[in-house]
Design a protein around this nucleic acid. Sequence first.
DNA 1: TTAGCATGCGTAC
DNA 2: TACGCCTGCTAAT
Length: 275
Amino acid sequence: MPEGHVAHRLARELNGRFSGLAVQVTSPQGRFAEAATLDRTVLEQAEAVGKHLLVDFGERGSVWIHLGLIGKLAVGPDVPPPSPQTVRLRIAARGAAATLRGPQWCRLLAPGESLRVLEASGPDPLRADADPGRAWALVRRTRRPMAAVLMDQRAFAGVGNIFRAEVLFRHGLDPFLPSAALPRPVFDSVWDDLVGLMTAAVEVGRIDTVDPEHLPAVMGREPRVDPHGGEVYVYRRAGQACHRCGGPVSAGPLAGRTVYWCPRCQPPGSRGELR
DNA sequence: TTAGCATGCGTAC
DNA sequence: TACGCCTGCTAAT
């Protein structure tokens, strides 16, 4: 259930545990037959772009992983995995193991093909080589709602349903605003905010978006049962009190997913404010 | 025990 | 826009 920060965090963990080592590669579930090709070869390095994870095995190619909505990659001590029938891919060396379950896909790419994955991705706020100008070019030429464009991986690679709702709230932006109506300074502020929020999420391993001045409101509210971890303004808080104005948080479908917003802080037609 | 939902995306209509 | 897919957890029956 990851947004881009999870992919980047996993790349970092894989590099820390396995980079430069000859690793055991298996598919206990049997649905990644190419595992045998990679077994006992050197894992060169792992890299993330957007929500994609690329694990480079040099001349043998790269494993291209996308976790999708429900996939998980757990990295930890090398112990026999429970329910191995759901383990698509397992990488192990020196007492550590990475266990992949339920990915959207897990494919072996020929050497060089991973470059195409990198090139096909939109700019990723978590990568130093990201060009926000490409995101702006897409934003300014469509009338799709801003909340839809924020989920478009060609524009904002790595942004998912949590980051989109939160960054819209933090800028007082109407989720339904046609993206072409977004002022350039607000776009710049949104991009910079994503860089900051997502970078922090990679470090901490969860998504926190609430500013310190609103934390008292967070602490005073009802306990949250949703397991996504961090402290957020609106994501999955429909009907609860907005941490800023106290009004009820709204929810509704947009581009096939549920978007959350505060109608008072993000009124219809609002073109947002700088942060 | 079953149904529904979830930080996602590809395909078919 | 609707649906299928991958898995695990929770709420409803």
